[in-house]
């Protein structure tokens, strides 16, 4: 089974700040609309490979970015995927 991971933010301010602190860092991610299956305060989420989640989280924590949640979604095309909320150590 293939998975994609998402990070959600409490406000657009922190979503864009996350993007700006990750700029020029060697990790791949994309700012995307929050999938309907996740509930989030802010409409923009960060999508990344699940094996990059830990490294990205460390950069965000170091820059005091407020995070709402971490999620892992099954990649099943356009159908609603199953969602698992992840709890990463701060």
């Amino acid at each position: 089974m293939a998975y994609t991971c998402y990070i959600t933010f409490p406000t657009t301010f922190f979503a864009i700040r996350a993007e700006s602190v990750l700029k020029n860092k060697p990790c791949s991610y994309k700012m995307v609309p929050v999938p309907r299956s996740i509930s989030s305060s802010c409409g923009t989420a960060l999508r990344c490979e699940c094996n990059e989640l830990g490294a990205i989280n460390i950069i965000l924590q170091n820059n005091k970015i407020e995070i709402e949640g971490f999620y892992r979604l099954e990649e099943i095309g356009l159908k609603t995927p199953s969602v698992e909320e992840l709890f990463l150590d701060e």
Partner: peptide, 21 residues
């Protein structure tokens, strides 16, 4: 429209407001 939709033109507007702040 900043903060509203998820498309790239909204992201551009979000970035602009972020930069202004």
């Amino acid at each position: 429209n900043p903060g509203r939709s998820g498309h790239t033109r909204t992201l551009e507007a979000d970035r602009l407001l972020y930069k202004t702040r």
